[in-house]
Design a protein around this nucleic acid. Structure first.
Lengths: 218, 218
DNA sequence: GCAGAAATTAAACAAGTGTTTGATTAATTA
DNA sequence: TAATTAATCAAACACTTGTTTAATTTCTGC
């Protein structure tokens, strides 16, 4: 049984501008350490506009989560409808889509990873949970198809496999500075980071997951 | 060339008590959202004692990092001195030691994972970095031994393999609540979580890493 | 038991927080 | 164009924050 987080969420242009500035500052400083005055300045609006448009700083965060969870879930739907691909290619497709989607929303993702450990707000928690359930279901169906085709191992722990996929991706984005240093890349240069790390991350994860899933022929 | 974070760090009993209370509250609420009054109350001391003993809230955090980084690095040294074990068993040993050490320091670890994405304090960053370098060197030497013995693949990307190992472990502890729900465990029950999740996490990670490293015999 | 140091305390401090107010301007509608 | 609604603003609000002060208690060495 699936849980849908929020059916619709319509935002005005101004709200979207504030949300865009906010997600950047939240990702940079963390939610608690980012002041509404910081956000207002970055979005070039008066401080009062945040309460005016969203009700509170907390509700602004909720709005950001609502929007991104919906956006990302939509993106994931594409995978579901890619039906007639071989199980091995589906694994590749899933990993590519995940990494590209997370890279495209990396500020939000950073914020989410950071906050999920201490999340007490039920709106945020349920939003993230719905995403995770979707992710797990997606990976499970791909693994099942491979098992049915007789090429994937039967005893794979899908829940922990998902843990590894997202854990690896999260770790890559969360320890970006360290990763850049090890690759002699300027941590500030966003384009350079994506160009150098993303392909490596993709091929590593694909090789790892497939060497785990594919049954050994002796 | 190795970088040592701090040579010595001696703390009084009172300081240790405050640090113990602080690490729990930091892990629960996050550093920014935890007030010195919260910590003082939990440690059953006056608020002023935090400044008196540590200088500031920030320096208290530094003290916590210093202490734990040293503690964990000591634990990792044990692996280095376990020389005459087979490469495959060394991988198992590394994974077991990592998970046990992180589980034993899970509050600190939660705090570290949460803060590392937005870390600007050089003392904290360098501490974490020294740990990561140690970890990577450890995994690298284990993989190299396996390659030399002709049982591990030559083209393994050790940096990304380490990313996966720690990413998976971090994800397990950071999404503890979700993981507990999926396993029908009470998230509050610490003992139950460790008993149910840790063994699964260990065996999953071992199976995963080894199926990746071991060369396929066709 | 007394002098000096260390530890502890309640209170005060200045700075920053999220939010609200009430007035002013801009946009929309009739 | 006049009336009504929406948007914007600077200022004020109440509150919490980390830190310091200055007085007091507790401990320590002689």
């Amino acid at each position: 049984m699936e849980i849908f987080y929020k059916v619709s969420a319509v935002f005005t242009q101004k709200q979207l501008e504030i949300m865009k500035a906010a997600v950047e500052i939240f990702a940079d400083k963390g939610f608690d350490n980012a002041s509404v005055r910081d956000i207002a300045k970055a979005a070039d609006v008066n401080v009062a506009m945040i309460s005016y448009y969203f009700g509170s700083k907390e509700k602004l965060l909720e709005a950001i989560f609502t929007r991104h969870v919906l956006k990302i879930r939509e993106k994931l739907e594409e995978i579901v409808f890619a039906s007639n691909v071989a199980p091995v290619d589906k694994i590749d497709l899933i990993i590519d889509t995940y990494i590209d989607t997370i890279a495209a929303n990396r500020n939000f993702h950073l914020l989410m990873v950071r906050e999920q450990g201490v999340m007490k707000n039920p709106v945020l928690y349920e939003g993230v949970k719905s995403m995770k359930l979707k992710n797990n279901a997606l990976i499970k169906s791909a693994v099942k198809a491979g098992v049915k085709a007789g090429i994937f191992r039967k005893n794979a722990d899908v829940l922990f496999l998902a843990l590894t996929v997202f854990g690896t991706i999260n770790q890559a984005f969360n320890t970006r500075r360290f990763l850049c240093e090890q690759h002699h890349i300027d941590p500030q240069d966003d384009g350079e980071f994506l160009k150098a790390i993303i392909p490596k991350l993709k091929s590593h994860l694909k090789a790892l997951v497939k060497s785990y899933l594919l049954v050994k022929e002796s």
